[in-house]
Amino acid sequence: MNVLARSQAPAPDTDTGVLLSARGLTKVYDTGEVKVQALRGVDLDVHRGELLVMLGASGSGKSTLLNILGGLDRPTEGDVQFEGKSLTRRSDAGLTRYRRNHVGFIFQFYNLVPSLTARENVALVTEIARDPIPPEEALDMVGLAARLDHFPAELSGGEQQRVAVARAIAKRPALLFCDEPTGALDSKTGIQVLEALDHVNRELGATTVVITHNVGIAEMSDRIIRLSDGLIVDIDEVGRAKKPSELSW
């Protein structure tokens, strides 16, 4: 299995092309007393427009991988290329530009700015983006057209997360990274969020990488990648077996 993962063949639908490609990623956290090897040599190609789910238990390395792909962290060894250009050799400012221009993030706990309304939280990002979707339109895409002027404290968890989705997609990112996007939600509101994600993925063609340990979610994806102990152990072509509304957990 390890061998399979390491020598991963190019994805079948090559016509869409490789957006992000990682080779030989290792990550060692040196806490001074112990060294923790979080990634042990990961190769991965992420294709344009696909919805990829990464599954794995706690400590499997999936968050570390997401952080590196998202330009929040650097690998100890190995290289990540975005549109054929290396990310790992970029400075902090270069990584900030990468995140600013190409990446959208959705967090488990939403991380909205409490002092800004839904519309303003989205505008926060559109103001620094090159070709953004107007905040109102982005919020409409996630079904929140009616709650534009509400502050986070006045929104439910599901609504807050959908604001976060709108905030992430409003800059028309090439890549959308979601770290346990439904982790803090019950299944009904979680599905609303996943529908929003699915919708924007199709509508905008944003390549979407979702981390979860919820196997149920995986069935809406194009591919499922399973991590264990710092390695990709399995890649499963699902091909969007289910719509989000058909999921349950």
Partner: peptide, 16 residues
């Protein structure tokens, strides 16, 4: 700190 770090993740520069 959390709010500001989130903005950094979203692509805001240190200066911003």
């Amino acid at each position: 700190g959390r709010e500001l770090a989130s903005l950094r993740v979203l692509g805001f520069t240190e200066g911003e």
